[in-house]
């Protein structure tokens, strides 16, 4: 039996097909609106596309999850309710939710729908996770990227629902779903609008030989001519403290926990998730294939190459992030 279920991102139908073809066990997607945390221009699924994606995946024995993981706006929760209803009606295998009120709605109005707790809910201890299970029948929790492997092992031993953790992709140094840095600079936040450091507020400028990346009214980074660049995600910018410039919060890195497969298995993790619904299908195909190969070799007790994805990491760097204590 496979050690892990591989959960892959798709921002478009083409990416969903690429993910399934490359060896995803499940693909997670979002609708083309503010109900999901990757509400980017030109991205995500219409209802029709979801139905097509579900058909494609199901025909190949794979699953589709729908992320409805932003927080419904007060006085205007209709779009989120419709998203839950339409996900269920179009054959989604699970919905990934974060908001208490929306979980309550889904549990009551769609009792047969499988519920996963989004990383955006930031449920970081067994007590919190137990509450979501007891109150709403949540079957799986996507763990926040603030836990060490030891924390995860301890946590998994104390709860009786599946755990899913991120194995590769962009990473937040902050507890997800509890961050207003983006909206402080741009007025648009992951929780309310499904965007972090949105492209609408990003500008690249050339100053002499330097490339300057700006978010809203603020300079987030500058790059020398030959230096690898990064998207101006606020927490991956360069800032000054005590007159010294540094990547104070996080370097422009990607999470890569492939080398931790034995530890993640020992910790009782059920599913591994790849971040990146906003990435192109070429990237999806490459990352999913590489992870699939690594997982298959791991399952057969063979050595595998954990550095195979270094080429596609942001800024050409990767990190094990919070899984290792040294990150703190």
């Amino acid at each position: 039996m496979a050690s892990f279920e591989l959960i892959c991102p798709a921002g478009t139908l083409a990416a969903l097909r690429a993910a399934v073809d490359a060896g995803a066990d499940s693909v997670y997607v979002g609708f083309r609106d503010e109900t999901n945390a990757r509400n980017f221009p030109g991205l995500n699924f219409s209802r029709k596309e979801l139905a097509q994606g579900v058909a494609y995946a199901h025909a190949r024995g794979k699953q589709v999850f729908v992320a409805i993981n932003t927080y419904p706006t007060a006085g205007n929760a209709g779009a989120w309710h419709r998203a839950v209803d339409d996900a269920a009606d179009n054959g989604a295998d699970a919905v990934i939710l974060a908001d208490l009120g929306l979980l309550d709605y889904a549990a009551r109005s769609r009792p047969k729908l499988r519920l996963h707790l989004s990383v955006q809910a930031s449920a970081a201890n067994p007590e919190a996770i137990g509450l979501y299970r007891d109150a709403f029948g949540v079957r799986r929790v996507v763990l926040p990227r603030v836990l060490t492997i030891n924390d995860i092992a301890k946590l998994t031993s104390e709860i009786d629902i599946d755990t899913e953790v991120f194995v590769f992709g962009g990473m937040c140094p902050m507890a997800e779903g509890r961050c207003s840095l983006s909206s402080y600079a741009t007025g648009r936040s992951p929780n309310r609008n499904g965007v972090c450091s949105p492209a609408s507020h990003v500008r690249y400028e050339t100053r002499g030989s330097k490339l300057v990346s700006r978010l809203g009214a603020f300079t987030i980074n500058t790059f020398d001519e030959e230096e690898p660049a990064g998207y101006p995600t606020l927490c991956k910018g360069r800032f000054t403290t005590h007159d010294k410039a540094s990547y104070l919060f996080e370097e422009p890195t990607s999470l890569n926990a492939l080398h931790l497969l034995p530890d993640l298995k020992a910790a009782g993790v059920k599913a591994l998730k790849i971040e990146g619904r906003q990435r192109g299908k070429a990237y999806i195909a490459e990352v999913v294939s590489a992870c699939r190969l690594a997982l298959d070799r791991f399952d057969r007790g063979l050595p595998y190459d954990a550095t195979v994805l270094d080429r596609v990491t942001e800024g050409g760097k990767d990190t094990a992030g919070a899984y290792g204590r040294a990150w703190r």
Binding site: T12, A14, P198, V202
Partner: peptide, 14 residues
């Protein structure tokens, strides 16, 4: 930048 990202996404979906 939003136009570029939007274009990329629109094209990439096909």
């Amino acid at each position: 930048t939003e136009l570029v990202v939007g274009m990329r996404n629109a094209l990439d979906g096909e």
